[in-house]
Amino acid sequence: MSKVEDYISSGILESYVMGLTSNWENLQVEAMIAKHPEIKQEVEAIEANLLSLAQAAAVTPHADLKENIFAAIEGRPVPKREKEKDLPDGKAGVKVIDINVEKPAAGNNTIWKWAVAASVTLLLGSAAFNYYLFGKLEDSNSHLAHLTNEHSDLNKNFASLQTNYGQSTEQLKIYQDANSKMICLTPVSDSSSLAHIYWNQNAKTVFVEVNNLPLAADTMQYELWAIHNGTPQSIGLLPIDHKFDPVIQMSNVDSAQAFAITLEKKGGVLTPAGQMYVLGKI
């Protein structure tokens, strides 16, 4: 027997058509069907076969089932089918009245009792429902407040991220600028101090990136100097809050051979008098 015949006679195709195979087996069978026309033909024969088996068992549906099914698929309410056989045998639909018992007055009274009971029930039901709705409303309100808070927090986060992003982009531009010269300012007295200057000699702009400087006393402030022909010229003060991130733009510089940072009296001085922390020569 050939491989294909073996495959057909294994019975897997019957299982496949009956939906009894695993997803993995389905993939295999589908591949075999695509590859071998004999297998495809066999599958079609099995399908027809199972259809005739099912057709042999056919049962005519109740006459109003079709309308119910159309109601169901079109989302209309499905009419309740009459179930005569649900009624106790012989008494179907027949109301039994005991002619020996006549209580019209009691009957009247009963109607009132029922009416009152019904109103009270409705009232209680309505009150309970209102209470329930009120609870729902409160839940919704607190949920809304929560969402509003969350929304404003997200907005703040977003704004701060946007600022960060803007700064990073600016910084990147400075780093990548081909005309920008990077000067490393290395420690003079304190060994861990470090800063970088990015000087665009075309645009004359100067940015300082402070990598590390010791925390200054309240009365003191760092000052940046451009040194031209041995003469230091102040190009600005660093913020007293010690927040140097990410880069700070200083005054423009036309020409200089070196940059330095010194610690001066708060507010700055015209000529450097304090301790020099970092210095970088071009």
């Binding site: 099912a54 049962v59 005519t60 549906p61």
Partner: peptide, 28 residues
């Protein structure tokens, strides 16, 4: 196909009313 499918359901659940309810589910 309704009679065929109903027949299959009858074979499975054995009772016409239950099978007709299921046939409605099948069509949905």
């Amino acid at each position: 196909y309704a009679p065929t499918l109903l027949g299959v359901l009858m074979k499975i659940v054995g009772e016409q009313e239950a099978a007709e309810d299921l046939l409605q589910d099948v069509f949905v």
